[in-house]
C-alpha cells in the first residue's frame, strides 16, 4: 500500500483529499503546514505528497526545497495543489522539484489524472 502525505492548512481540503485517496488504496497522513510535514518526512518519507502553497509557519515552497535536500528527499512524488494558478508559480514549483501541479479548485478526476501522471497510480 502506498503512502500519501496531505499538507494543507485547510482541514476541509485534507478531508476531501483523504476521501479521494483512501479508496484508491493510499495510506493517508496529514499535516497542517510545511514544518509539521517536514517533521513527518524526517521520520518516514511517503511515496507521494499533496502540497498546498500558502500555509502558516512554513509554506509549501519552503517545505519542498527542504524536502529535496533530505537524504532520499528526491523520492516522494510531490504534487502541488494550490490556488496559486499562474504560470510564474507553476514554473517556480517545477524548478524547486515539484513533479506535478494541481490548480484549485480540483476534483477527483483531476487528482487521479495527476497521480497517474507521476506514477503513483497505474493507467
Amino acid at each position: 500500500m502506498q503512502t500519501c502525505l496531505v499538507v494543507d492548512d485547510s482541514a476541509v481540503i485534507r478531508k476531501v483529499a483523504r476521501r479521494i485517496l483512501e479508496p484508491l488504496a493510499f495510506t493517508v497522513t496529514e499535516a497542517e503546514n510545511g514544518a509539521v510535514a517536514l517533521e513527518q518526512c524526517l521520520r518516514a518519507l511517503p511515496d507521494g505528497i499533496l502540497l498546498d502553497w500558502n500555509m502558516p509557519v512554513m509554506d509549501g515552497y519552503e517545505f519542498l526545497r527542504s524536502l529535496r535536500k533530505l537524504p532520499g528527499g528526491n523520492k516522494p512524488q510531490v504534487i502541488f495543489c494550490t490556488t496559486e494558478n499562474d504560470v510564474a508559480h507553476i514554473a517556480k514549483a517545477l524548478h524547486a522539484g515539484a513533479d506535478e501541479y494541481i490548480m484549485k479548485p480540483f476534483d477527483k478526476d483531476i487528482l487521479i489524472a495527476k497521480l497517474k501522471e507521476v506514477g503513483l497510480l497505474a493507467g
Binding site: V87, I90, A91, L94, E100, Y101, I102, M103, F106, D107, D109, I110, A113, K114, E117
Partner: peptide, 13 residues
C-alpha cells in the same frame, strides 16, 4: 478543469 484533465503540467506550460 479541462486543461488539467489528462495534461501533464509541463505540457500545459
Amino acid at each position: 478543469f479541462e486543461a488539467q484533465r489528462g495534461l501533464a503540467v509541463r505540457r500545459l506550460l
